[in-house]
Design a protein around this nucleic acid. Structure first.
Length: 400
DNA sequence: AGGTATTCACATGAAACTATTCTCTGAGTTAGG
DNA sequence: TAACTCAGAGAATAGTTTCATGTGAATACCTGT
C-alpha cells in the first residue's frame, strides 16, 4: 500500500523554517569571533607568531575539559596565521589531527602514516614497520625549507592507549630534520595528563602551557546568543530558552558543545512540531532525546559479544535486584548456548562490563562482600522508557 | 570483647596468542632478444 | 637478461586467552580477661 506523501512534502516546504543556518550550531563550526577566549587566543598567537619569521615556535600544550573551546581557538588562530604566512610567502604548514579518530590516528603507526599522507606519500594501512613510515615521512619533510605545526587533539587518548613513545619520537624528529622544523601543539582533555609522562618528554613538549577554564553559565549564554543570532530567524526563542540551555550545560562542567547541541535539537524538535517558537520545555525534551539517541547508537554499534553481554545483564537484572559479575556470566553463557556463540572467558567479560560502564549504559561498582568475595555490583543506567526499544534492538541484532 | 588470620570471588595487569590484512623480498619462471 | 609471478617472512591491529597477582571486609579462630 502506497501512501501519498505529496501533501506531507508540500506542507513541509510551505512551512517557515526556524533555522536560517543550522551549521552555526554544529560542533565543527568555527565562529568568526570567539567569545570569552581572548586571553587564550592572544597567548596562542604570541607563541606561534615567530613562525612568520621562520623561527620555530615553542611546543605548546593546551588543557581544558570538553567543550571549553580548545579546538575552536586553535583552529581560529592557525587559520589566521596561515593567511598571514601566505601573504608573507612563508612556507608554513599546519596539520590538525584528532588522535581519537578510529582507524585514522589512534596508533603511532596510523598517526605518522596519516601525516605522511598529508604530504602525498602513499603509506599502506598495514604491512610496514613503523620505523619505515617515519623514515619516509622524514625524507619527504626534509625536501624543502619549511615550518610545520602539528596540532594533536585529544592526545591524552592516544598516549593512554599506546604509551608515550610517540611523543618521544616526535620531539626527537627535529634532531633528524635538516631543513624543516616541527612544532607540536598538544590538546588534552585530561588536566593531569602530563603528570604521568616521562619528564624529558614533558619538558620538551610543554614549553608553553595554556589552560582553558570551563565556561560559566553567563559565558555560555553569550556564546549561545551569538550562535543563535546566526542560526535562527529573529524572535523565535521564547525568553529563558538560552538561559536554560546554558544552565544545563554549565551543570556539566561548562561544556559549550553540549549547550549548542541542546539548542539545536530543541530547534529541530520545535520545527518538527510545527511550532513557530522554541519553547522552554522543548529543551527538556531535547535533552531526553539526545541521551536516548546516544544510548541507542552505542547499543547498535557495539560488537556482538558486548550486545550479548548487555542482553544478559538486562535479563539478569529483572525487578531491580542487585546483580554481580558471576550472575551475569552464568546468564551470558546460557544466552551464548542458545544463539550458538562461543562464550568468552570471564576475564574478558569483566572488561566488557567495564566498557559498558564507561559508556554509561550500566553502572558497575566494585564492592567487597567480605567473606563472600569481591565483585562488581551492576545496575542498568538506562531510563526505563527506552529499555524496551533496546531490548528489541538487541533481540533483532542477535537473532533471538 | 578484641585482635588477627583466612578466605571468597572476583578485580586488575601483563603477556602471549589468533586471525586478518597488507607489504617487501628474493627465488624461480617466462618471454623476448 | 629483463620482466614477471608468487611464496614466505614479517608488521600492524583488534580481540581474546592465559597466567599471575591483588584485594576489602565478613567470618573463623585465638587470646587473655
Amino acid at each position: 500500500m502506497k501512501k501519498d506523501l505529496g501533501v506531507f512534502f508540500d506542507n513541509y516546504l510551505n512551512k517557515q523554517p526556524l533555522f536560517l543556518d543550522k551549521k552555526a550550531l554544529q560542533s565543527n563550526f568555527t565562529p568568526a569571533n570567539i567569545t570569552h577566549r581572548d586571553e587564550q587566543i592572544e597567548h596562542l598567537a604570541a607563541v606561534l607568531a615567530p613562525a612568520l619569521r621562520m623561527d620555530k615556535p615553542s611546543n605548546i600544550f593546551m588543557y581544558g575539559k570538553t567543550g571549553s573551546g580548545k579546538t575552536c581557538v586553535s583552529k581560529h588562530v592557525t587559520e589566521q596565521i596561515l593567511e598571514a604566512a601566505q601573504k608573507k610567502k612563508v612556507n608554513l604548514h599546519i596539520y590538525y589531527l584528532n588522535c581519537k579518530l578510529k582507524k585514522v590516528a589512534d596508533t603511532e603507526y596510523r598517526l605518522i602514516a596519516e601525516l605522511a599522507r598529508n604530504f602525498h606519500i602513499h603509506i599502506p594501512s598495514t604491512g610496514l614497520p613503523t620505523e619505515d613510515v617515519y623514515k619516509r615521512f622524514v625524507e619527504q619533510l626534509d625536501k624543502e625549507e619549511k615550518l610545520v605545526i602539528l596540532i594533536l587533539d585529544e592526545i591524552d587518548q592516544l598516549v593512554s592507549k599506546t604509551g608515550d613513545g610517540i611523543l618521544y619520537n616526535l620531539t626527537r624528529l627535529n634532531g633528524e630534520l635538516k631543513k624543516c622544523q616541527l612544532s607540536i601543539i598538544g590538546i588534552s582533555n585530561d588536566l593531569m595528563f602530563t603528570d604521568n609522562l616521562d619528564p624529558r618528554i614533558k619538558s620538551s613538549l610543554s614549553e608553553e602551557e595554556l589552560v582553558f577554564p570551563p565556561y560559566n553559565a553567563l559565558q555560555l549564554q553569550d556564546i549561545l546568543r551569538a550562535r543563535a543570532e546566526i542560526a535562527f530567524k529573529n524572535n523565535i526563542l521564547e525568553s529563558g530558552v538560552i538561559e536554560k540551555c546554558a544552565a544545563y550545560a554549565a551543570r556539566e562542567h561548562g561544556d559549550a558543545r553540549r549547550a549548542l547541541e541542546l539548542l539545536r535539537v530543541s530547534g529541530e524538535l520545535a520545527e518538527r512540531k510545527n511550532q513557530d517558537k522554541i519553547k522552554i520545555n522543548d529543551i527538556d525534551e531535547a535533552e531526553e532525546k539526545i541521551e536516548k539517541d546516544r544510548v541507542l547508537d552505542i547499543v547498535k554499534t557495539q560488537p556482538k559479544q558486548s550486545q550479548i553481554a548487555l542482553y544478559s545483564i538486562m535479563h539478569t537484572c529483572n525487578n531491580g535486584k542487585q546483580i554481580f559479575t558471576g550472575d551475569v556470566y552464568e546468564q551470558y553463557k546460557e544466552v551464548c548456548k542458545i544463539i550458538g556463540y562461543k562464550p568468552l572467558t570471564q576475564r574478558r567479560m569483566g572488561d566488557i562490563i567495564a566498557e559498558l560502564d564507561m559508556f554509561g549504559i550500566i553502572n558497575a561498582r566494585v564492592v567487597s562482600k567480605g567473606r563472600y568475595g569481591r565483585t562488581k555490583e551492576i545496575n542498568i543506567a538506562i531510563p526505563s522508557n527506552s529499555l524496551d526499544k533496546i531490548n528489541v534492538i538487541l533481540k533483532e541484532g542477535l537473532g533471538i
